[in-house]
Simulated assay, not measured.
Amino acid sequence: MKKLLLLIFTLTSLKAFSQFEGSKQIYEAKDLKEAISTQKLVAILPFETKITYKKQPKNYSPEGNHQQELAMAKNIQSSMYTFLLRKKNDYSVDFQDVDKTNILLKKSGILDKLDEYTKDEIAKILGVDAVIGGKFEQEQSKSEAGAIASAVLFGGFGGKTGSGTLTMTVNNGSNGELLWRFFKTMDDSVFSSTDDLIERMMRKVSRNFPYRK
C-alpha cells in the first residue's frame, strides 16, 4: 500500500513538474539574423534579481535580503558565462569575461545602477556588440527545513521551496534594440544552485539561442 501511494505521488509530482516547467515564451526581432551576423563580442550583465517571501522569515532583514539579491545577480551572471564558455564552439560569437565586464561597469560608476542606462550606452562602455541581460524573481514559499523534511519523506520529491520567473534578453549594442527575449517559469528546490538553474534554463533555450551556429 505504501509503495502504491508513493508511486501515485511520484507520478503526480512529475506531471505537475512538467506542466510547470512547460511555461515559456520566446520573442525574436524581425531583423535578428541580420543584426547578429556582424556581431563578434557579447557581454553578460548581472541579472536584476528580486527575492520575496510568502511568509517572511523570523530573522528577516531588508539589508540582508538585498545583499542576497546582489549575490544571486552575480551568481547567475557567472553561471551563464561558465555555461556559454563550456560550449563556446557551438556559438558564432565570443563572450566577454564577466570579471572584466564588472570591472568596467564599476570603473564607470554604473555597476549598481544599470537600470538608469540604455543597453547601447552600456555596450559602448563595455566595448561589445551586444549585451545579454535579464531578470530573476524568486518567491520563497517553504522553509528550508520543511523542504528537506519533505524530500526525505517522499524519497527526493516534494523538496520544492518556492517558484520563480527568469527572463533573458539580448540587446543590440549599436542601438539598444531588443533582438531576442526568453521568459521561463522555474521551480526552486532546496538542492538547486544557480548553476543548476542556468543549466536547466539553457537546455530549454539552446535550440532557440540566437548565437547558436
Results as ranks from 00 to 15, higher is better:
116 E>C: 11
176 G>C: 03
188 D>T: 12
40 K>Y: 02
74 K>D: 02
20 F>Y: 13
21 E>Y: 12
204 K>W: 02
37 S>V: 06
202 M>Q: 04
179 L>N: 03
136 F>N: 07
211 Y>L: 06
23 S>Y: 15
117 Y>P: 07
50 K>Q: 01
139 E>R: 12
114 L>H: 00
100 K>G: 00
7 L>A: 09
79 S>C: 04
107 K>F: 09
202 M>P: 07
170 V>E: 00
131 V>C: 00
92 S>K: 15
11 L>K: 06
129 D>R: 06
65 N>M: 05
137 E>R: 09
193 S>T: 14
79 S>A: 09
109 G>L: 03
49 T>I: 01
183 F>S: 15
100 K>I: 14
10 T>Q: 12
7 L>H: 06
137 E>I: 07
188 D>Q: 15
193 S>L: 04
113 K>W: 08
157 F>D: 00
135 K>S: 13
81 Y>W: 14
66 H>M: 05
173 G>R: 10
111 L>F: 13
201 M>C: 11
130 A>G: 10
154 F>N: 07
39 Q>P: 10
143 S>Y: 09
73 A>D: 04
194 T>Q: 15
132 I>L: 09
24 K>Y: 14
71 A>G: 06
166 L>T: 01
159 G>D: 00
21 E>T: 14
3 K>A: 09
18 S>D: 08
209 F>S: 04
50 K>H: 12
15 K>V: 08
99 D>C: 02
104 L>C: 04
18 S>V: 09
140 Q>R: 03
19 Q>M: 14
50 K>F: 06
199 E>W: 07
125 I>F: 06
10 T>D: 04
8 I>R: 07
139 E>L: 05
123 A>K: 04
105 L>Q: 07
197 L>D: 04
5 L>K: 11
144 E>D: 11
170 V>T: 00
199 E>N: 12
45 L>T: 05
152 V>K: 05
127 G>N: 09
109 G>E: 07
52 T>C: 12
51 I>V: 10
128 V>Q: 09
40 K>G: 13
35 A>Q: 11
180 W>T: 00
196 D>V: 01
132 I>K: 06
123 A>E: 00
159 G>V: 01
197 L>I: 13
73 A>R: 05
139 E>V: 13
42 V>F: 00
95 F>V: 05
71 A>E: 06
26 I>A: 05
184 K>M: 01
146 G>N: 14
52 T>F: 03
138 Q>D: 02
160 K>G: 11
137 E>W: 11
164 G>H: 11
196 D>K: 05
108 S>N: 15
172 N>P: 03
135 K>A: 10
